[in-house]
Design a binder for these strands. Structure first.
Lengths: 150, 150
DNA sequence: CATCATGTAATTATAGAAGTTACATGAAAA
DNA sequence: TTTTCATGTAACTTCTATAATTACATGATG
């Protein structure tokens, strides 16, 4: 089962935007993410709706951060993506009539809920500012090199 | 991202086997799971290798439980499936050269590890015997009805 | 008004899992 | 001992969810 890397990718893109004060085009971001501009627009739409970024058309248009990095948590970004499933495993049947399967579902559901809640809580404590600080620390360690992709 | 229901399905099958003392054919199990006998054999192979079930060929052949339900945890079953991924989200790049992406990965990795460890620990505390007891309780509540699929 | 960039619907391509076929192996019954 | 039945696997064929692409509309800027 292939793992969804949109959260990871979107965080990458947001931190790249953080460095710049001019709008960044979807095409530019797509190059960084090695994907298609349309995919970027689709993903960014959720962030725009929540006011984390804004977009402009025409010459000099593109995407800019609309909030401070410290105000955005990883959980916020996850929600902006439409709260995709966190767990890779699930029930075979959602509302089974078979009592055996009901018992199976009940046992699994508890564990699933707990793990999801924990992960969400954890994501809620990490801000983009923290990630950016970590990046800066890594950059300092590595020396003068660029350190990030184009 | 579609969730993997093999664990759920396999548990269902195992509990159905628990009731009977005669071998159950792959074809029969496939009917319960609404799938193909070959799929059943593929999945059961992992359980057999670990000694949880045994299989016999020819007339009167099929699958039987080789261990007590109390000796098998949900974690054991998960491992018998080949330890499929538990989390639906992951890193975009596993070993990125971009320092920004390294920071992103590091932040996510902590949360991921923690959630996975917790879920595995949780699955390790639940035995098939517990699930069977839960099934029996549900059966008692419902009355005389069959309660489980064929 | 020409160009550039986003906004979105519609379509196509791709990859991974599930399902199926085919046939070999071996056990029990006739 | 021959037939039937069931597993054991490899090979192949759908199937399906997602990403990628195409196409075109909207609107801003020089």
């Amino acid at each position: 089962m292939k793992r969804d890397s949109r959260l990871s990718g979107l965080l990458h893109v947001l931190l790249h935007m953080a460095g710049r004060d001019v709008p960044v085009t979807s095409e530019h971001l797509a190059r960084i993410m090695q994907t298609n501009p349309v995919v970027i627009r689709r993903i960014m739409a959720g962030l725009r709706k929540r006011g984390y970024v804004s977009s402009g058309k025409g010459h000099g248009g593109g995407w800019v951060l609309a909030r401070d990095l410290a105000e955005i948590t990883l959980r916020d970004v996850h929600e902006a993506l439409g709260e995709p499933e966190l767990l890779a495993i699930g029930h075979r049947t959602e509302a089974p009539s078979c009592l055996i399967e009901q018992a199976v579902n009940a046992a699994l559901a508890d564990s699933f809920r707990e793990a999801e809640a924990m992960l969400l809580a954890r994501l809620g404590t990490v801000t983009l500012a923290m990630l950016h600080a970590d990046f800066s620390a890594r950059l300092a360690l590595r020396g003068r090199a660029e350190g990030s992709c184009p």
